[in-house]
Computed example of a mutant assay.
Amino acid sequence: MATEPRIPNDIRDLDYQDITGFVTRDDPTSHPTDTGGYADVFIGSYNKGDGERMKVRCFYNSGCFGAKLLKVAIKVFRIPLRNEKVEQYLIRETAVWSRLHHPNILRFLGLADDLGRHGVPALISPWCNNGTVMEYLKDRPLDDRFRLILGIADGVQYLHDDDVIHGNLKPSNILISHEGLPLLGGFSRSHLLNYRGFTTRPNGTCRYQAPELFEEEARYTKASDVYAFGMTCSEIWTGLPPFAGYTQDASIILQVWKGARPACSSPCSEETSLLWKLLERCWMKEPEERWPIGIVRHELGKLVETFRELEKVGRLPIFGVL
C-alpha cells in the first residue's frame, strides 16, 4: 500500500522563491495595514531586478506586474519568540500557497527572511489597492456582484480539482485585483488532501463555518468549503453578513445547529430568488447533501443565461444588482 506523502518539516525543503533583500517596507515605523489571528500585514515594494531569478511571470492580467517595482503585502507572524508551532504554520501555508496558480487565486511571490520576526520569514504577495470584496463593493455598489461570485466559484473549483481545501473562505479573505477580479487568499488553514502533516483543527469565523466543524474531531473538507462559499456569496449579494443579528459566537453556533440560514428577502427580485435556491444547496446541514463546487459552478453558469433572457424581456433592470 502506497504511503501518503508528507509535507517537509523544514521550510528550506519546500519549493518557493527566496526574495530576501528584494522587498522593503514602505514605512518601517508604520503600524500594520491589517491584522489577523496570528499575523500582521504591512505594505512594501518588491524590486524585481533584471535577472532571470527575479522575474515575476504575469499569470493574470495586471498592469502592476509590468513594472520593475511592485507594490506588495508583507505578512509577518505576530510572535514573541520563534517556536515549532509557528514554523509549522509557516510551512503549511507555504506548502499550499506556493503551488497555486490561477487567475482567481492571490499570487504567492515568495518568502523574505529579513522582514519577519525572530527569524521567521515574511510571506509576500501582490498588494491589492481595491481591498477585500466587501470594501470594493462599498465603493462600487452598482458593480456586477454575480460576476464576482462566478470568479470566486472558479477559484474554489480550481482548489478542489487540485485536492486543496481552503478551510477559511470568507469575504475578508477575498481580495480584488487591479482589474476587479476576485482573488482567494488567506491560506493559513488550508491543507492538501492525501498529504500527512496537515492537522489544523477548525478554528475559523463561526458565521461561515459548516455545522460539522463545531463537533469534536472535526476536519475541513470540500463540503465545508462549499458551505462557506454559500455563506460568503449571501453576504456579497445582500451586503449583510450571515446571522447579522447575532454578535456572540455561541449564539451563532446555536442558530446554525437549529438549522437557521440566511433568509431570502421578501419580496425579492427574480434574480435573487433563483440565486438563493442555488445557495441553499451549498449550506445543507449534511455535508453529503451539498453540491460539489463543480456542480455549483455549472449551475451558476446556467443562471447567467437565465439572467440574460430575463434582461431581454425587461424583468431585470440592472444585471447583477439587487
Rank of each mutant, 00 (worst) to 15 (best):
W291Y: 13
L123N: 01
E309V: 02
G239Q: 00
A223E: 15
K222D: 07
L111C: 09
G167S: 03
A95K: 00
M231Y: 02
W283L: 14
S273F: 10
D10C: 00
V156H: 14
R78P: 00
E212Q: 07
C268N: 03
R12M: 13
F198G: 08
K258T: 00
S177P: 05
E217R: 15
H298Q: 15
P171E: 11
R57A: 09
I149G: 02
W283D: 13
L81N: 14
T29G: 00
M231I: 11
L279Q: 01
L175M: 10
L111M: 04
P241R: 13
L123G: 00
A228V: 07
N104Q: 13
I19W: 06
N83A: 02
A260P: 07
N129A: 06
S62W: 03
E135Y: 01
G245I: 05
T29V: 01
M231L: 09
R308E: 12
I293R: 09
I74V: 13
Y38Q: 08
V86Q: 06
I43A: 01
F187I: 03
N194W: 11
M1Q: 13
V96S: 04
K285F: 09
G301P: 01
P5Y: 09
G301Q: 07
D13E: 15
R297A: 12
M54V: 08
G116T: 00
A95T: 07
S98G: 02
W291S: 14
K75R: 12
N61D: 15
W276C: 09
D154L: 09
A2L: 10
L183S: 13
E179F: 00
L193S: 02
D139R: 11
F108V: 10
Q209R: 12
I91Q: 10
E235D: 08
S45H: 03
E270H: 02
P267S: 05
S273G: 08
D114Y: 07
L275S: 08
L300Q: 09
V86L: 01
F146A: 00
P5F: 02
G314E: 04
H102Q: 07
F59L: 04
G204H: 11
W276I: 03
Y136V: 00
F108Q: 02
P242N: 14
C206S: 12
R117I: 08
R297P: 01
Y195F: 15
T132Q: 00
L142H: 13
K75T: 12
G49D: 02
F146K: 03
I253V: 13
P103W: 03
L254H: 12
R53G: 04
A244D: 06
D114M: 10
N168F: 12
N168L: 06
T199D: 15
D114P: 06
T238Q: 02
F22N: 11
K222Y: 10
N83H: 03
F319Y: 15
R290T: 01
E215C: 13
G245S: 02
H298E: 11
I295S: 11
L123C: 07
I43M: 10
C264Y: 01
F59W: 14
N203R: 14
S62T: 05
K138R: 11
S273E: 12
M1H: 11
R297W: 01
A244Q: 14
L169E: 04
N104G: 10
V304N: 09
S266C: 07
N61H: 11
C268R: 10
A210H: 11
G186P: 09
T94C: 05
E84M: 05
L150A: 06
F77W: 07
